[in-house]
């Protein structure tokens, strides 16, 4: 019974959310709002679960004197502690320690990670775009046109480059993308139906 209960809940709420789309009546809308509220309440609780998991995991590693990479866990715990203290006791508004740490430590670190993309794109392009056969020659040519067409220098060379880039993006690329989208959408519909009907159960943890 305990195993079946989540399946029943999923079926009832899945069906309700589907039906609600077609029923504008206030009773249906009120129920719908209530469901949305509850989803957020449950999600807020899951944030607590996440924090507890994180602290537990890193405390375990940090408490083992011989543990490899122990220093990283200590830094995580220190970071959590500092942010909780500054956020709770010194405020989170403008000109606070919390915001200073956010703007001057977290934001630059995150931006650094994002900027790595440019290096990885360059090395992946160098390694990956090889003219091995006719198809890859087309791929390579298209990539060069789009790359040049999407920056001012492409327009400077010849206006045909941005025009060709737009055509490549709006016609062949779009056709392929739409095909993939339709496939994904149908996959999503089928998986959703399997979940609502209780055929797909792995999300409950185990089959």
């Amino acid at each position: 019974m305990l195993r079946k209960l989540p399946l029943y809940i999923c079926f009832v709420f899945g069906t309700f959310m589907l039906a609600q789309f077609f029923i504008p009546h206030p009773v249906s809308t009120a129920l719908y709002k209530m469901v949305l509220d509850w989803v957020q309440i449950i999600y807020a609780l899951s944030l607590l679960v996440g924090a507890a998991m994180l602290i537990k995991h890193h405390t375990l590693i940090a408490s083992k004197p011989v543990a490899k990479d122990r220093q990283y866990s200590l830094i995580v715990l220190f970071g959590i502690f500092i942010m909780i203290i500054t956020g709770l006791f010194f405020g989170r508004g403008n000109k606070t320690v919390f915001l200073w740490i956010f703007n001057n430590i977290q934001a630059p670190m995150q931006a650094t990670m994002f900027s790595l993309l440019s290096f990885f794109v360059a090395s992946a392009a160098y390694r990956g775009f090889r003219a091995r056969n006719a198809q890859s020659v087309f791929l390579l040519g298209a990539a060069i046109i789009v790359m040049l067409g999407k920056v001012p220098i492409g327009d400077m060379i010849t206006p045909y480059i941005p025009q060709s880039a737009d055509w490549l993006l709006n016609v062949p690329s779009m056709a392929a993308r739409r095909g993939i989208y339709i496939g994904i959408a149908l996959g999503t519909i089928a998986t959703s139906l399997r979940v609502i009907l209780g055929i797909e159960r792995t999300y409950l943890g185990g089959k």
Partner: peptide
């Protein structure tokens, strides 16, 4: 925008060099 242009050109050059090496 200038930086983005030069970065794109570099990637194009890298693709060409990569293919020559290949």
């Amino acid at each position: 925008m200038d930086a983005q242009s030069t970065a794109h050109i570099l990637i194009v050059l890298l693709i060409i060099v990569g293919n020559v090496v290949y």
